[in-house]
């Protein structure tokens, strides 16, 4: 499971304040601790913190670079903000994200190629988010085809079938599970499928329980990457245990510790 830590996001109050005050320590601390807690990559999102999104993105990326060479997921709906992040990345970044709308793809896929970036494709096109699993898979296929045209390697592609909050769209989590499964069938080798997990529990009660339950279900369907909160220890424990039950890690009595040790040494 490829983990993208979600905490460097201007939606969070401490990050917003740090961006406004240009306080590097808050951001650097968040970068280091998320990596220690099991992140493989850090999401970087300026959010609504400031009007100067390009400047803020540059500052965030450079600030993180000062404490380590971490893969970054450059998260913005605006291509110029994304490019500002990509330009400053020192290891292969991820564009988070493009839709399958040709107009958007035509801007972002050449950018992915230019900066040797991986790319997350949302299963949304010019007509919006399809209501069914089949519809999401169809859009995913369109995105894959466009990636092929732009000579982006399959290893560098993530498909995000878009999860919605369970209280607002209760039929969606199950459909997304089906979509994960069918997206894995789209090519051989299969594309990575990713979710922005916290979205499933937006404005719900018992958020953490909902998040970890859904993560485990999605992993069973073939989820390969996830944007989540690595500080949620119960969530990480559930993820590690799911890996074990899916025969992705060899069991030992200290399996939680073994995963964490493996993960921390693998990055050095």
């Amino acid at each position: 499971m490829y983990i993208i830590g979600e905490r460097i996001n201007g939606m969070f109050k401490n990050v917003k304040e740090a961006i406004l005050a240009q306080d590097k320590s808050v951001i650097q601390e968040l970068a280091l601790t998320q990596m220690e807690h099991g992140a493989d990559c850090l999401d970087v999102n300026v959010g609504p913190a400031t009007r100067d999104q390009v400047g803020a993105m540059e500052w965030l990326v450079k600030t993180i670079n000062e404490v380590g060479e971490f893969p970054l997921s450059i998260d913005s709906p605006k291509p110029d903000v994304i490019e500002a992040g990509l330009k400053n990345c020192r290891v292969q970044p991820i564009i988070n994200s493009t839709t399958a709308d040709p107009e958007v793809m035509n801007k972002l896929l050449p950018m992915a190629k230019k900066y040797n970036s991986r790319v997350i494709g949302l299963t949304i096109d010019e007509n919006g988010v399809p209501g069914t699993a089949e519809g999401r898979t169809e859009v995913a296929l369109k995105f894959l085809a466009a990636c092929m045209e732009h000579e982006i390697e399959i290893e560098d592609i993530f498909i995000d079938p878009i999860i919605l909050p369970v209280n607002a769209a209760q039929d969606v989590p199950k459909r997304v599970l089906e979509a994960i499964h069918s997206c894995k069938m789209l090519s051989d080798p299969a594309p990575a499928v990713i979710l922005g997990l916290s979205n499933v529990s937006q404005k719900c009660n018992n958020r953490k329980l909902i998040n970890r339950t859904y993560l485990v279900m999605a992993m069973a369907m073939g989820l390969s990457a996830c944007i989540l909160d690595p500080f949620d220890d119960d969530l990480m424990d559930a993820m590690i245990t799911a890996r074990l039950l899916l025969n992705e890690d060899i069991y030992c009595d200290s399996f939680l510790e073994a995963y964490r040790q493996k993960h921390s040494t693998a990055k050095i």
């Binding site: 060899i250 069991y251 030992c252 510790e257 073994a258 040790q261």
Partner: peptide
């Protein structure tokens, strides 16, 4: 194999 991994840990 499970014990092999455990002893290493």
């Amino acid at each position: 194999i499970n014990i092999a991994k455990q002893v290493n840990i």
